[in-house]
Design a protein around this nucleic acid. Structure first.
Lengths: 199, 199
DNA sequence: CCTAAAAATGAACACTGTTCAATATAAAAA
DNA sequence: TTTTTATATTGAACAGTGTTCATTTTTAGG
């Protein structure tokens, strides 16, 4: 076959990402299969390579979609937040991961081969999440604070991420950790308080 | 063949873990192969299943060995530490990961199938690391501090872990993060300072 | 209607994890 | 010493994987 008229190139791209994302949510990174994605989309294996160049390309696109959903989730949490927006942010970070463990984990499970890096489109699709956090961190600190806010925000994200990844991977379950979200939030608050009170 | 006399059961176990750990260091989790481990050890595929029950069993054992080496690395760092033992600990955490990225990442890449959990032997082999940190955190705080030190130590580990995993996975490289170890240490110090000064 | 360009295919290849009947070996019994 | 028994080891078989690419099908333009 060739040049079927049932999908434009863009539609085909989206279709494969749709089915890929669903499959990832169902079975997780370890059981993910490119062949299965093609089958579900009604195309054959080779099409993935025509459209994305490689399986890594599809996986990157799937994960970029997850970043988008995650950013939406955070914006939803902030929209209904009270005065403590930082708490809403941290809770939103965790709740997305816990509600979507397979696609969330896939973000960190997938690593590009040495030398390769994400496409500009993928990078752009993932930047929103960081910028949301940075905006809230800025609001939480006095204008006079002497900090590289981009760097500092990424560091806070890293702290929360560490807690979250222990929860999702199950390392914390074993240790009877009852409130990992609370611990993460405590660490963030401690750091913010240091910089709020600095002169 | 059967009952070869060139290795005792324990020696065979260790031999497979040796070669498995080396292969993991060379190629990383994604390219790891049980067949290849067996071949290098001079045995056939089935032997892995005889000895470890499953490939997950071998992978768990390999990762437990990594935990052991990591704990040794931290003890080495503490042995030559000056007055700032917390800094040595955080730097040791990072330097092990950066010097052994493949085996370090494999700890988090490998996840047991749903319902399965680590053997008691594996759990015990991994506990040392946490206990080393807990001991140092205890030393860094006044005896009067009102904290669950086990929980609190795990939370600090999670914070450092988050920074470290961003470095090893390359997420931070992209963002021109020049000093992730410094950021991690800053967050730890901020938290400790809050509890050192509390009354 | 014909042709040229492009999209879609799927067989082929080299790998993977896992199982398990068959086999080779060592230790125990005769 | 020979025979038997128990068990450690094997590797073919199976069902899957990612990746390539010559072949085929379809569409669009002349």
């Amino acid at each position: 076959m060739g040049r079927r008229s049932d999908h434009t190139p863009q539609q085909l791209r989206d279709l494969l990402i749709d089915h890929g994302h669903k499959l990832m949510a169902e079975v997780g990174y370890a059981r993910f299969s490119g062949r299965e994605v093609a089958k579900r989309a009604g195309y054959s294996v080779g099409t993935i390579y025509n459209v994305f160049g490689s399986l890594d390309g599809l996986l990157s696109a799937i994960n970029t979609r997850t970043f988008g959903l995650w950013a939406q989730h955070l914006q939803g949490a902030l929209a209904t937040a009270g005065h403590d927006r930082i708490a809403s942010l941290v809770r939103g970070y965790f709740s997305f991961a816990l509600e979507n463990p397979n696609v969330w984990s896939a973000i960190y499970d997938h690593r590009l081969p040495d030398g390769q890096s994400l496409s500009p489109a993928d990078l752009e699709g993932r930047a929103l999440l960081t910028s949301i956090v940075e905006q809230e961190v800025r609001k939480a600190l006095p204008d006079t604070v002497d900090l590289d806010l981009a760097r500092y925000s990424r560091s806070l994200i890293a702290s929360v991420h560490g807690h979250c990844s222990y929860v999702v991977s199950g390392s914390f379950a074993l240790l009877d950790e009852t409130d990992p979200v609370g611990s993460a939030l405590d660490r963030v608050r401690e750091s913010l308080s240091v910089h709020q009170n600095a002169q």
